[in-house]
Design a protein around this nucleic acid. Structure first.
Lengths: 219, 219
DNA sequence: ACGGTTCGGTTGTATTTACAACAGATTGGT
DNA sequence: ACCAATCTGTTGTAAATACAACCGAACCGT
């Protein structure tokens, strides 16, 4: 089995936990590793979840297809990120989204009971892990709010400006690379791809921005 | 000072904490109570926050006005609910929304450091409070995702159906009362009020639903 | 009873969008 | 090098939306 300790060391769930402790925590927390191929479903809407997941390798999309087949991408998960944590609370119902691997991926599963319940053994880090969990979900919360900020704009152009200018702020540059292709960006912003493509070109003609593939330059 | 212990007893933050312990925790956690008049701002976009807030009385709106003055309502806070918890993480930046009192309201402030840091004294409940905090933010997370589900629908009608049918599911009835007036509902769904009003009447004419003020009946 | 304010509904118009269909470019596999 | 699949841009049309303006009803305090 591939050694993912260096990855977990940098994962938010284990922030503040020493290298040597991670290995012991893996068994203490009952960690399981699973691998997925590109395009494979990791979680499906309607399932129930009792594990907190940490992406060790690859990347994932959180998405949802509605009754009419419109797909909306709610977010993207990169290596080291936690997910599923919003659905392990006792009263939480079923999953509201699919999670799908956009590349070949490896994922750690941690049983939430063992994460949250402080054990009497050597693991001195449960409190810290629960705090990390809280901070991680806080961050996800904020990014959901930001996404809501983009989507609640009225026109496609405003949505694009809102999204791109925030990316520029995040990446601290007017040259930005986005993690989506056109269809995915359209799904993320909940607009029609061709209409969005059209709007992007109009904005380019007006000199608002330049782009090539998924790299953009704002003015 | 009004006795809010019965309210706090039912608040999610203190679930599982005995009545008599709440009083002692209030001082241990350094709780402060503030009152706000209807229409007054509780928090403003751009501020930094180091307290977790619990609404003891009244009701609040989380909202945001964009550059062009379009208001979007991100959610509503009722008595006993926690808020602000997503912005107290160490790396979290400034608030992304305003919080405004829609009625005269009373709010408890808890310094996050004292909530999260386990103290050595009599408070045996810090662990439980941190867990409650985690479950509360999980729930908020899920409701954000649900709202995203509504807003990411393409047409006003689909947004309305998505929102109303979910309310019906929540309230477990086809007769539902919504906590918004027309303008607020339009802000919540990020659509134009008059267009939405128009669409609602069309749907009524088509026999999809009936309504009077903020009470709806679905078919 | 009065005037002011808020709220919900209606209408018309200009703008914006979704949708479908297609074409060229790029990518990936064999 | 080739074919197939995917990605991106383009166009036209029908549908949906925002916006502004207005009206009547309900509600408020004085």
């Amino acid at each position: 089995m591939k050694d993912f300790v260096p990855v977990l060391k940098r994962a938010k769930l284990f922030a503040g936990v020493g290298d040597e402790d991670i290995t012991s925590m893996l068994s203490c927390l009952g960690a399981k590793l699973r691998t997925y191929e590109k395009g494979e479903y990791v979680l499906r809407e309607g399932e129930r979840l009792s594990d907190i997941l940490v992406l060790a390798e690859g990347s994932l999309h959180i998405q949802r297809d509605d009754y009419w087949g419109n797909r909306s991408i709610l977010g993207r998960i990169e290596v080291g990120e936690i997910f599923g944590e919003a659905y392990v609370a006792p009263e939480s119902g079923m999953l509201l989204n699919d999670v799908i691997a956009v590349e070949d991926s490896s994922i750690f599963f941690f049983d939430v009971k063992r994460v949250i319940t402080t054990c009497s053994s050597a693991c001195r880090f449960h409190t810290m892990v629960v705090q990390n969990l809280f901070f991680a979900i806080s961050e996800k919360n904020r990014s959901l709010v930001q996404k809501l900020g983009h989507i609640s704009k009225r026109t496609t152009r405003e949505k694009l400006i809102s999204y791109l200018s925030e990316e520029a702020k995040k990446q601290n540059s007017s040259y930005i690379t986005i993690p989506f292709n056109r269809q995915q960006l359209a799904d993320y912003l909940s607009v029609d791809r061709s209409a969005m493509s059209n709007e992007l070109c109009k904005m380019r003609n007006e000199g608002l921005l330049e782009f090539e593939k998924n790299r953009f330059k704002l003015r």
